[in-house]
């Protein structure tokens, strides 16, 4: 029983001998990323992804999957293939331009404590 752990939420399931490599079955519906505005005044936030045949179906699925308990007032869906992303692993070169600009943050400036409201 050495290959069993309680990982995976609903209980112990064998880990050894279970294939994890991608197989040959191809998905027939494209992948969409879903963004939800939780309430007025907030930005849309990425909540996950889903598969759908077209944009309209993606919106309906997103409503059913990600807003079953009034979690949103507005949904964006976008095909995952259409997203251009920086990779977190490229953090250093890509985000470097802002890394050394500490003067962009309010805490960079020393203001005497007796100056009010600043």
């Amino acid at each position: 029983m050495s290959e069993l752990t309680s990982e995976g939420g609903h209980g112990a399931v064998p880990l050894e001998g279970v294939p994890a490599a991608p197989g040959t079955v191809k998905h027939d519906w494209p992948l969409y990323e879903v963004f939800v505005r939780g309430k007025r005044g907030l930005n849309h936030v990425h909540v996950g992804s889903l598969h759908a045949a077209d944009d309209q179906m993606a919106l309906h699925h997103a409503r059913d999957l990600y807003t079953r308990r009034n979690e949103g007032v507005s949904i964006w869906v976008v095909r995952a293939a259409d997203i251009t992303a920086s990779s977190p692993d490229e953090k250093d070169p890509f985000f470097a331009p802002s890394g050394d600009k500490v003067y962009r943050h309010p805490t960079f400036y020393d203001i005497p404590e007796d100056v009010p409201h600043i």
């Binding site: 609903h10 399931v13 294939p19 991608p22 079955v25 191809k26 027939d28 996950g48 889903l50």
Partner: peptide, 26 residues
Amino acid sequence: SAAATLGADRADLTDKLITGRQKYSS
């Protein structure tokens, strides 16, 4: 959806489930 971020595909995972190659909680 979380598994998809690691390069797994849902259709493929479903196939592995219904052919008994991946397991579910007993």
